[in-house]
Amino acid sequence: MNITINGQRHEVSEGTSVAGALESFGTPARGVAVALDGAVVPRDSWQRTTLHEDATVEVLTAVQGG
């Protein structure tokens, strides 16, 4: 099935979780936040939150600044 991650289309297997998608695309497991279709997905839900056809995933990286 097709999903969008940070504006780019990707193909993933049916039943892929948020955690699985992040791992597949080499996203670090720490220092990021994830939104699925505009709603934040808590880190402890990544394994059990499955993606659907045309899901939109935004991965945000924490950046320190001053």
Rank of each mutant, 00 (worst) to 15 (best):
P42H: 13
I5N: 10
L36R: 12
I5H: 07
G26M: 06
H10R: 14
R9A: 05
F25D: 04
R30D: 09
R30T: 08
G7L: 02
Q47D: 15
G15M: 10
R48P: 00
Q8E: 12
S45I: 01
V41F: 11
A19W: 03
L22C: 11
T50K: 12
T27V: 15
V41C: 09
I5C: 14
L36I: 07
E11S: 10
D37M: 04
V12W: 03
A29S: 15
P28G: 09
R30G: 04
V18Y: 07
T27Q: 11
V34D: 06
Q8H: 05
G31Y: 08
W46C: 09
Q47P: 15
S13C: 01
H10D: 07
R30K: 09
A29M: 08
A35H: 03
N6A: 03
D37Y: 03
R30E: 12
I5M: 15
D44R: 12
A39Q: 15
G26S: 10
S45Q: 15
W46D: 08
A39P: 02
E11L: 02
D37F: 03
T27K: 04
G20N: 05
V12E: 03
S17L: 07
H10C: 03
L51Q: 12
T27I: 13
D37A: 04
L51M: 14
A21D: 01
F25R: 06
V32T: 08
A19G: 02
S45F: 10
Q8R: 07
V41W: 11
A19R: 15
G20K: 07
Q47H: 14
A21C: 14
G15F: 10
I5W: 04
S45R: 15
V34N: 05
A21R: 01
Q8F: 00
